[in-house]
Design a protein around this nucleic acid. Sequence first.
DNA 1: CTGAAAGCGCTTACAG
DNA 2: CTGAAAGCGCTTACAG
Lengths: 345, 345
Amino acid sequence: MAQKIKLSTIADSLGLSTATISLALRDSPLVASDTRDKIKEQARALGYIYNRRAASLRTSRSGIIGVVVHDVMNPFYGEILKAIESELDRSRHTFILSNHYDSVEKQRTFIETLLQLGGDGVIMSPAIGTPVEDIRLAEQNGMPAILVARTMDGVDLPTYRGDDSYGISLATNHLIGLGHRVIAMIGGTDQTSTGRDRYQGYVDALRKANIEVDPSLRIPGPRTMQGGFEAAVNFLSLPQKPTAAVCWNDLVAIGLMNGIARAGLIPGQDISVTGYDDLEQASISTPSLTTVSNQQADVGRLAARALLDRLAGSHEPDGLHLIKPEMRIRQSTSPYKPLRDLAKA
Amino acid sequence: MAQKIKLSTIADSLGLSTATISLALRDSPLVASDTRDKIKEQARALGYIYNRRAASLRTSRSGIIGVVVHDVMNPFYGEILKAIESELDRSRHTFILSNHYDSVEKQRTFIETLLQLGGDGVIMSPAIGTPVEDIRLAEQNGMPAILVARTMDGVDLPTYRGDDSYGISLATNHLIGLGHRVIAMIGGTDQTSTGRDRYQGYVDALRKANIEVDPSLRIPGPRTMQGGFEAAVNFLSLPQKPTAAVCWNDLVAIGLMNGIARAGLIPGQDISVTGYDDLEQASISTPSLTTVSNQQADVGRLAARALLDRLAGSHEPDGLHLIKPEMRIRQSTSPYKPLRDLAKA
DNA sequence: CTGAAAGCGCTTACAG
DNA sequence: CTGAAAGCGCTTACAG
């Protein structure tokens, strides 16, 4: 490893001061253009690497933005993260990604680390049970926070997420429109605002169509493909014999369809199934999945932009910004027909 | 936002020097234990936040480790990343994740950013076409690099990845052991080392069993579920009438099984199919998929540990470390029986 | 248009 | 066991 090159190395080699070098490398108009060109040329030739820690110690701006969600590898966050990434790239910010796996502890550690690194801001999908103090920790130390995908009670931060209640009502209405009357809801939990909102959207849609709401048609819990697969057994043994299922998300829906197929029924024909999220997998599953697009790219883009605006000094109004979901109709839903008797098969 | 708390704030409030505070907070035995307790108590009370940039400027250690792969959201990297994360968490390192999407440009920007932040090391699955200079850039500036999942020609860095040739031979031998003799290979490409290795593993296994290798039994190309689905038509019209297929990965295998089912044959009974990767979906597909586990968790764990060892001063031998894959036998493979004539059905 | 000097908040020999 | 002081590599008023 060669000798470390720093501003003073360049300054000495050119007979200039570090101040001039510093200004030139950042394209300050204070430096004559030919001096600047000479300096940049020399920096390149010496293999100079800008030391951000030193700069940020001085300026108290790090260019770092933290992003923490439940699980980066979960495709649900894929589009949100990609949209955030592309917004942040454009403004030359570095983004630090982390999972909290719904551990409040892990999330707090991340926020503390980010503060230690001098993070300029944080975009988070808060862990279940996040105490308000953890959010305040960020804000009080000058690190603005923006929420995505999940709401938090008791804080008035800018929050960007899909309109879940509206989105689920789209799916439910679609099934009702096809003639289904016994419609189960599979997956999700009351512990998150999203879970409550989606269940509420389902309930509201049924009520509006004058269909009695039967709480035992709800199978809460599943959030993964595996979970949906396992839920198929409970679903198929419901005494009400549902002919359709509104699922928490695409993964649950795909898992449920696999479970239904395993039991000898044909998903999409015998049982109509809807998903939520419109993942890439939704369009190529067999049958292709009727689902709700969350418009996740919009969620991510708007959240990132809101943070950048705030860092630039302009203050977007706080509070909830709901993005309207859209229906994607495919092969996993079909008009109602009476359920085949499995015992006969 | 309250007044910024720093070491000197604590020092002044307690009538001590910053040196003592610094040592106490890091549990130095040089500080009397009751002094230390008092200091820690006060730090907590004041809401002190450790400034890592200042510390790292002084020590030239940042605690930051970069991880860059093709696409964080791609499930192929999921287990690798989780294993790296948990190793790094344990050693209290911060990890910065990034996608390069096989853009050499984006990958170089990431390495430069990491150097600017004083990254201690980097774990990478190099972008296709990465020039050796980009890797040297890291090493020459004192930032050791470890490779995962992909090999790079011309560099002698520690590299951790699955033994693809061995893995595919496991799958092929499994089918041979079940009595199959006409076995097709679906998907993959000769453009990557992985593609060449997997085809070679298939060829070697056949040769060892004295089965003649017929190049027209290879259908290269498919890497997605959609691709596997479309390949079913070609597969079923092969004049050699294969009774089994070794697939490039789980997605291709699942797609192929869907295509086989669509044509009226029963995958797992009429045609045996193997996958590769052992994704979550493999165990819940219908039929459940016999596949090869890449042992991705081992890849990630060993790579992270190799980097940490190197940072701690001990030098693992460079070069390629191949992780042995393992067979997962499920329902998509069964003993050979003559192929049903579809024309009759 | 360029330079001298202070200071961001730590850690680390060194001294006592 | 504790303190005084230098220095990590930048940026930023300020002076010229």
